[in-house]
């Protein structure tokens, strides 16, 4: 690892940061979307008419993966002749969306799956289920914001 860092300089650290942002936030989204998908399939198997409502809930935990991808693209835009300190700064700048994205995606999936149960029993209350799930999104947005500001500070 040390030899790679020495050979490629800061670029290797920046790429590691970009990879972590995409991988870890993506894992959170995958877990979240998967959880809601199971609940949504349960609801739709009993009442196919509720597909539209549960689909919105299933989409919500997918955003963290997109935020991770966005941060990774921004970091990749900086790659090319970075020194070690700049590379390390980009690595650390990627961590907020990577870590918060994981937990936010996973927990948003949980809330959205509970929202599917709400849709199953009281379809007219589906808006409230979406709001509950959207609340979890706040922290992913805050983490993305801080990652973007930190990335912008480098170079």
């Amino acid at each position: 690892m040390f030899q790679i860092v020495q050979a490629f300089g800061g670029d290797a650290l920046a790429i590691l940061g970009a990879a972590l942002a995409a991988i870890i936030a993506g894992m959170g989204s995958a877990k979240g979307v998967g959880t809601v998908g199971e609940a949504a399939a349960g609801v739709v198997s009993e009442d196919p008419g509720k597909f539209g409502k549960v689909l919105i809930l299933q989409i919500l935990p997918g955003t963290q993966g997109l935020y991770g991808l966005l941060a990774a693209i921004m970091v990749m835009g900086k790659v090319g002749g970075l020194d070690l300190s700049q590379g390390a700064m980009l690595l650390f700048a990627s961590l907020p969306i990577a870590i918060v994205g994981y937990f936010s995606g996973k927990n948003q999936g949980r809330v959205a799956a509970a929202g599917c149960s709400l849709v199953a029993k009281k379809p007219e209350q589906s808006g409230k289920g979406i709001i509950f799930a959207a609340m979890v999104e706040t922290y992913a947005i805050l983490a993305l914001l801080i990652s973007i500001l930190l990335i912008g500070k480098v170079g």
């Binding site: 959880t35 199971e38 609940a39 949504a40 399939a41 349960g42 609801v43 198997s45 009993e46 009442d47 799956a113 599917c116 149960s117 199953a120 029993k121």
Partner: peptide, 17 residues
């Protein structure tokens, strides 16, 4: 607890009956 996500959703839908 995640093992029953699908089952719980179906149960909730059936509770209407």
């Amino acid at each position: 607890e995640y093992d029953y996500t699908y089952a719980v959703a179906r149960v909730r839908a059936n509770e209407l009956s």
